[in-house]
């Protein structure tokens, strides 16, 4: 083996890391600081940034914003839950496939990325159009439900096609978001599932567990790392989502991303948009911090438990 001078290897490490470090500093850290600084400025009527002041933060006390922030988080959580629920069995199934099929299916999942994201959302807009076939199916379903369960309280009533459109509703945003983010949920789960030792499920079955119990108690904890990545991979972009609610949510699903756009482009109030962006960044950072804290507390708990139990056994053995 080649011996390396520790000083030289340190320098080599720096040299390798430097480009990405510079890139991040220039295009991530500096803009973030600028955005943060903007929030402490007023705005000028012609769209510029005004004097240092706290006026922007004061303007932010708008009863609309907590509602929008909450709605953004709620929709993102909903999207995350659906994506994970759909991705889990999918990742499990791919990991259990033969090697050849595995790459075919994994490739098929990535296939939509060959088409522009905006084009795909446009396609959904067409599909969900009130004259489209999905809407027709939806109405048929609603009418069937009304016919079958109409006599039940709360389920009845006439179906009104005008008020029962999928397009321009929160449902459309959730549906297309799940469609968009599903591959991002499947991939980390599949990567984790591929490394999972499926003999463990056999062992669980052998010891008396039913299939679903083994899946829940052995498989899910076994791919915990992938699960955490999948949740973050869906939740974070969902919070920042702008195109989907803009094109499919109409006025019924305005999320924080759309508000930022409005403030920056329509109202030409850059500091206000910056403050909203900061608010959004904080709400994105919270789940990450939570996840990290949870992981750390878990390992700390395990260590503590091990120490306590060992101590108990040691003293128990001594007495």
């Amino acid at each position: 083996m080649m011996k390396m001078n520790p000083l030289r290897s340190r320098r080599a490490e720096w040299l390798v890391t430097l480009p990405s470090l510079l890139w991040l500093a220039l295009f991530f850290a500096v803009p973030s600081v600028i955005v943060l600084a903007f929030t402490f400025h007023g705005h000028t009527p012609n769209g510029g940034v005004g004097e240092w002041s706290l006026s922007t933060w004061r303007e932010l006390v708008d009863p609309d914003y907590p509602v929008i922030v909450w709605k953004t988080i709620r929709v993102s959580l909903e999207v995350t839950v659906w994506s994970i629920v759909l991705a889990l069995p999918c990742a499990y199934a791919i990991a259990r496939m033969g090697r050849r099929w595995r790459s075919v299916v994994a490739g098929a999942i990535m296939l939509p990325f060959w088409t522009s994201f905006v084009v795909r959302v446009f396609a959904w807009k067409t599909m969900l159009h009130p004259d489209g076939w999905l809407q027709a199916c939806y109405l048929a379903f609603l009418r069937l439900r009304a016919w079958a369960f109409g006599w039940l309280p709360g389920c009845g009533g006439q179906v009104d096609p005008a008020s029962s459109t999928i397009l321009d509703s929160e449902a459309a945003v959730v549906l297309v978001s799940v469609y968009t983010f599903l591959p991002f949920a499947i991939m980390p789960l599949y990567t984790a599932a591929e490394k999972f030792d499926f003999a463990l499920l056999e062992a669980a079955r052998d010891l008396g567990a039913k299939n679903f119990y083994a899946f829940r108690k052995i498989f899910i904890p076994g791919i915990r790392q992938g699960l955490i990545s999948a949740i973050l991979m869906v939740f974070i972009p969902a919070i920042g989502s702008y195109v989907i609610p803009q094109m499919l949510g109409g006025t019924n699903c305005v999320l924080i991303g759309n508000k930022i756009f409005m403030r920056a482009i329509q109202n030409r109030n850059i500091p206000h948009a910056s403050a909203l962006a900061t608010l959004m960044a904080v709400s994105v950072l919270i789940p990450i911090a939570c996840a990290m804290w949870w992981r750390r507390s878990q390992s700390a708990r395990d260590r503590k438990r091990l120490d306590a139990e060992t101590a108990r056994l040691m003293t128990g053995g001594a007495s």
């Binding site: 056999e202 062992a203 079955r205 008396g208 039913k210 915990r224």
Partner: peptide, 21 residues
């Protein structure tokens, strides 16, 4: 009978201990 319905247990070659427990 499925594996969980028989009182027959296996010691697997690679042990198959549950790593998260």
């Amino acid at each position: 009978l499925p594996p969980d319905k028989r009182r027959v247990h296996t010691v697997f070659q690679n042990y198959a201990l549950f790593p998260t427990m």
